[in-house]
Design a protein around this nucleic acid. Structure first.
Length: 224
DNA sequence: TGCCAGGCCGGGT
DNA sequence: ACCCGGCATGGC
Protein backbone atom coordinates (compact mmCIF):
# COMPACT_ATOMS: atom_id res chain seq x y z
CA UNK A 1 0.00 0.00 0.00
CA UNK A 2 2.98 2.28 0.44
CA UNK A 3 4.20 1.73 -3.07
CA UNK A 4 5.56 4.53 -5.14
CA UNK A 5 2.51 4.29 -7.33
CA UNK A 6 0.35 4.58 -4.25
CA UNK A 7 2.13 7.75 -3.25
CA UNK A 8 1.65 9.20 -6.69
CA UNK A 9 -2.02 8.33 -6.72
CA UNK A 10 -2.51 9.91 -3.32
CA UNK A 11 -0.68 13.00 -4.47
CA UNK A 12 -3.02 13.27 -7.45
CA UNK A 13 -5.97 12.99 -5.14
CA UNK A 14 -4.65 15.65 -2.78
CA UNK A 15 -3.94 18.02 -5.64
CA UNK A 16 -7.38 17.59 -7.12
CA UNK A 17 -9.13 17.90 -3.79
CA UNK A 18 -7.29 21.10 -2.92
CA UNK A 19 -8.05 22.53 -6.32
CA UNK A 20 -11.69 21.60 -6.64
CA UNK A 21 -12.95 20.57 -3.25
CA UNK A 22 -15.37 17.75 -2.45
CA UNK A 23 -17.65 16.86 -5.34
CA UNK A 24 -20.49 15.41 -3.30
CA UNK A 25 -21.13 12.46 -5.55
CA UNK A 26 -23.29 10.74 -6.69
CA UNK A 27 -25.64 13.58 -7.59
CA UNK A 28 -28.81 11.77 -6.49
CA UNK A 29 -31.09 11.51 -3.51
CA UNK A 30 -31.65 7.79 -3.33
CA UNK A 31 -29.95 4.53 -4.23
CA UNK A 32 -32.66 3.85 -6.80
CA UNK A 33 -31.81 7.12 -8.45
CA UNK A 34 -28.12 6.26 -8.51
CA UNK A 35 -28.73 2.95 -10.22
CA UNK A 36 -31.12 4.32 -12.80
CA UNK A 37 -28.82 7.28 -13.38
CA UNK A 38 -25.82 5.00 -13.84
CA UNK A 39 -27.56 3.28 -16.74
CA UNK A 40 -28.93 6.48 -18.22
CA UNK A 41 -25.59 8.28 -18.19
CA UNK A 42 -23.85 5.77 -20.44
CA UNK A 43 -22.14 7.83 -23.14
CA UNK A 44 -24.40 10.73 -22.29
CA UNK A 45 -23.98 14.20 -20.83
CA UNK A 46 -25.27 14.34 -17.27
CA UNK A 47 -27.47 17.32 -18.01
CA UNK A 48 -29.59 15.15 -20.29
CA UNK A 49 -29.79 12.44 -17.68
CA UNK A 50 -31.17 14.96 -15.20
CA UNK A 51 -34.14 15.68 -17.43
CA UNK A 52 -34.88 12.00 -17.77
CA UNK A 53 -34.57 11.41 -14.03
CA UNK A 54 -36.82 14.37 -13.42
CA UNK A 55 -39.44 12.89 -15.73
CA UNK A 56 -39.22 9.57 -13.94
CA UNK A 57 -39.58 11.24 -10.56
CA UNK A 58 -42.62 13.21 -11.54
CA UNK A 59 -44.17 10.07 -12.97
CA UNK A 60 -43.45 8.27 -9.70
CA UNK A 61 -41.40 5.78 -11.68
CA UNK A 62 -38.27 5.74 -9.54
CA UNK A 63 -39.65 2.66 -7.88
CA UNK A 64 -38.81 -0.94 -8.77
CA UNK A 65 -42.43 -2.08 -8.76
CA UNK A 66 -43.60 0.80 -10.93
CA UNK A 67 -40.61 0.46 -13.20
CA UNK A 68 -41.26 -3.24 -13.67
CA UNK A 69 -44.90 -2.69 -14.57
CA UNK A 70 -44.46 0.40 -16.72
CA UNK A 71 -45.10 -0.30 -20.42
CA UNK A 72 -41.98 -0.08 -22.53
CA UNK A 73 -43.33 2.76 -24.65
CA UNK A 74 -44.14 4.84 -21.59
CA UNK A 75 -40.73 4.31 -20.10
CA UNK A 76 -39.12 5.19 -23.41
CA UNK A 77 -40.99 8.49 -23.52
CA UNK A 78 -39.93 9.42 -20.03
CA UNK A 79 -36.24 8.80 -20.58
CA UNK A 80 -36.02 10.16 -24.10
CA UNK A 81 -33.97 13.25 -23.20
CA UNK A 82 -31.17 10.95 -22.08
CA UNK A 83 -30.55 9.82 -25.64
CA UNK A 84 -30.23 6.26 -27.00
CA UNK A 85 -33.52 5.84 -25.23
CA UNK A 86 -34.66 2.63 -26.87
CA UNK A 87 -31.48 0.91 -25.87
CA UNK A 88 -31.67 2.35 -22.38
CA UNK A 89 -35.30 1.36 -21.98
CA UNK A 90 -34.27 -2.21 -22.75
CA UNK A 91 -31.37 -1.95 -20.31
CA UNK A 92 -33.46 -0.55 -17.47
CA UNK A 93 -36.05 -3.26 -18.00
CA UNK A 94 -33.32 -5.88 -18.05
CA UNK A 95 -31.91 -4.65 -14.77
CA UNK A 96 -35.26 -4.36 -13.05
CA UNK A 97 -36.33 -7.81 -14.20
CA UNK A 98 -33.11 -9.30 -12.95
CA UNK A 99 -33.26 -7.38 -9.69
CA UNK A 100 -36.72 -8.69 -8.84
CA UNK A 101 -35.79 -12.18 -9.90
CA UNK A 102 -32.46 -12.32 -8.10
CA UNK A 103 -32.97 -10.13 -5.01
CA UNK A 104 -36.69 -9.52 -4.85
CA UNK A 105 -35.81 -5.88 -5.56
CA UNK A 106 -34.21 -5.60 -2.14
CA UNK A 107 -31.24 -3.22 -2.18
CA UNK A 108 -29.97 -4.26 1.23
CA UNK A 109 -29.88 -7.88 0.18
CA UNK A 110 -28.12 -7.08 -3.06
CA UNK A 111 -25.44 -5.02 -1.39
CA UNK A 112 -24.88 -7.69 1.24
CA UNK A 113 -23.38 -9.79 -1.56
CA UNK A 114 -19.57 -9.85 -1.62
CA UNK A 115 -18.26 -7.29 -4.09
CA UNK A 116 -16.59 -9.60 -6.61
CA UNK A 117 -19.67 -11.81 -6.74
CA UNK A 118 -22.02 -8.88 -7.07
CA UNK A 119 -19.88 -7.38 -9.81
CA UNK A 120 -19.97 -10.61 -11.78
CA UNK A 121 -23.72 -10.83 -11.30
CA UNK A 122 -24.28 -7.28 -12.47
CA UNK A 123 -22.08 -7.86 -15.50
CA UNK A 124 -24.36 -10.72 -16.49
CA UNK A 125 -27.22 -8.28 -16.96
CA UNK A 126 -27.40 -7.09 -20.54
CA UNK A 127 -26.65 -3.38 -20.65
CA UNK A 128 -24.57 -3.31 -17.50
CA UNK A 129 -20.90 -3.15 -18.31
CA UNK A 130 -17.90 -2.65 -16.08
CA UNK A 131 -18.23 1.04 -15.39
CA UNK A 132 -21.95 0.84 -14.73
CA UNK A 133 -21.52 -2.15 -12.44
CA UNK A 134 -18.77 -0.43 -10.50
CA UNK A 135 -20.74 2.81 -10.25
CA UNK A 136 -23.71 0.93 -8.82
CA UNK A 137 -21.56 -0.89 -6.28
CA UNK A 138 -19.65 2.21 -5.19
CA UNK A 139 -22.22 4.96 -5.39
CA UNK A 140 -25.41 3.09 -4.60
CA UNK A 141 -23.92 0.41 -2.37
CA UNK A 142 -21.24 2.55 -0.76
CA UNK A 143 -18.86 -0.37 -1.16
CA UNK A 144 -15.18 0.00 -2.05
CA UNK A 145 -14.78 -0.72 -5.73
CA UNK A 146 -13.01 1.72 -8.04
CA UNK A 147 -14.91 3.23 -10.95
CA UNK A 148 -12.95 3.87 -14.13
CA UNK A 149 -14.18 5.95 -17.01
CA UNK A 150 -12.92 7.55 -20.19
CA UNK A 151 -11.58 10.57 -18.31
CA UNK A 152 -9.66 8.38 -15.91
CA UNK A 153 -7.91 6.62 -18.75
CA UNK A 154 -7.16 9.87 -20.56
CA UNK A 155 -5.81 11.61 -17.51
CA UNK A 156 -3.62 8.75 -16.37
CA UNK A 157 -2.36 8.24 -19.87
CA UNK A 158 -1.41 11.86 -20.31
CA UNK A 159 0.46 11.73 -17.07
CA UNK A 160 2.14 8.52 -18.09
CA UNK A 161 0.80 6.42 -15.28
CA UNK A 162 -0.59 3.98 -17.75
CA UNK A 163 -0.02 3.04 -21.33
CA UNK A 164 -2.67 4.15 -23.79
CA UNK A 165 -3.51 0.53 -24.44
CA UNK A 166 -4.39 -0.11 -20.80
CA UNK A 167 -7.85 -1.54 -20.52
CA UNK A 168 -10.54 -1.02 -17.92
CA UNK A 169 -9.56 -3.74 -15.50
CA UNK A 170 -5.88 -2.84 -15.57
CA UNK A 171 -6.67 0.74 -14.64
CA UNK A 172 -9.11 -0.32 -11.97
CA UNK A 173 -6.48 -2.63 -10.57
CA UNK A 174 -3.90 0.14 -10.51
CA UNK A 175 -6.05 2.00 -8.00
CA UNK A 176 -7.30 -0.95 -6.03
CA UNK A 177 -3.88 -2.51 -5.62
CA UNK A 178 -2.18 0.67 -4.52
CA UNK A 179 -4.76 2.32 -2.31
CA UNK A 180 -6.67 1.17 0.73
CA UNK A 181 -10.16 -0.14 -0.02
CA UNK A 182 -12.07 2.86 1.24
CA UNK A 183 -15.46 3.61 -0.28
CA UNK A 184 -15.47 7.29 0.69
CA UNK A 185 -12.01 7.75 -0.81
CA UNK A 186 -12.85 5.90 -4.03
CA UNK A 187 -16.04 7.90 -4.25
CA UNK A 188 -14.30 11.24 -4.08
CA UNK A 189 -11.41 10.11 -6.25
CA UNK A 190 -13.53 9.15 -9.20
CA UNK A 191 -15.68 12.26 -8.86
CA UNK A 192 -12.59 14.46 -8.87
CA UNK A 193 -11.21 12.70 -11.93
CA UNK A 194 -14.43 13.44 -13.78
CA UNK A 195 -14.28 17.07 -12.74
CA UNK A 196 -10.70 17.43 -13.89
CA UNK A 197 -11.45 15.50 -17.05
CA UNK A 198 -14.34 17.75 -17.96
CA UNK A 199 -12.24 20.83 -17.49
CA UNK A 200 -8.91 19.73 -18.91
CA UNK A 201 -9.01 16.37 -20.57
CA UNK A 202 -11.59 16.49 -23.32
CA UNK A 203 -10.47 14.57 -26.38
CA UNK A 204 -9.84 17.68 -28.42
CA UNK A 205 -8.11 19.71 -25.78
CA UNK A 206 -4.71 18.35 -26.56
CA UNK A 207 -2.63 18.55 -23.48
CA UNK A 208 0.90 19.12 -24.83
CA UNK A 209 3.21 17.90 -22.18
CA UNK A 210 2.00 17.49 -18.71
CA UNK A 211 4.30 14.87 -17.23
CA UNK A 212 5.17 16.61 -14.06
CA UNK A 213 2.68 18.31 -11.93
CA UNK A 214 -0.55 17.85 -13.74
CA UNK A 215 -2.75 20.08 -11.80
CA UNK A 216 -0.82 23.26 -11.76
CA UNK A 217 -2.06 24.41 -15.11
CA UNK A 218 -5.50 25.59 -14.14
CA UNK A 219 -6.87 26.66 -10.98
CA UNK A 220 -9.54 26.22 -8.51
CA UNK A 221 -12.64 28.04 -9.11
CA UNK A 222 -15.59 28.05 -6.82
CA UNK A 223 -18.18 25.55 -7.89
CA UNK A 224 -21.71 26.85 -7.71
C1' DT B 1 -21.83 22.73 -38.21
C1' DG B 2 -19.75 18.84 -36.22
C1' DC B 3 -18.12 16.73 -32.24
C1' DC B 4 -18.87 15.10 -27.81
C1' DA B 5 -21.06 13.18 -23.56
C1' DG B 6 -19.45 9.95 -16.49
C1' DG B 7 -20.72 2.99 -22.38
C1' DC B 8 -22.21 -1.24 -24.01
C1' DC B 9 -23.50 -4.74 -27.22
C1' DG B 10 -23.27 -7.67 -31.22
C1' DG B 11 -21.24 -8.99 -35.36
C1' DG B 12 -17.31 -9.36 -38.13
C1' DT B 13 -12.38 -10.46 -38.80
C1' DA C 1 -8.37 -11.51 -29.09
C1' DC C 2 -9.28 -7.01 -31.19
C1' DC C 3 -12.09 -3.72 -34.09
C1' DC C 4 -16.16 -1.33 -35.45
C1' DG C 5 -20.89 0.47 -36.26
C1' DG C 6 -25.06 1.56 -33.96
C1' DC C 7 -27.58 3.84 -30.56
C1' DA C 8 -29.84 9.44 -30.11
C1' DT C 9 -30.68 13.62 -27.37
C1' DG C 10 -28.96 18.28 -26.31
C1' DG C 11 -24.89 21.74 -25.58
C1' DC C 12 -21.15 24.28 -27.11
Amino acid sequence: MSTRTGQTLRAFYDAMLSAYGPQHWWPAQTREEVIVGAILTQNTAWRNVERAIDNLKRAGALDWRVLADLPTEDLAKLIRPAGTYQVKTRRLKAFVGWFWERYDADLDRMFATPIPTLRTELLSVSGIGRETADAIILYAGNLPTFVVDAYTARILCRHRLIDESADYDEIKDLFESNLPADAAYFNEYHALLVQVGKLHCRPQARCPACPLDPFDHEVPTEEP
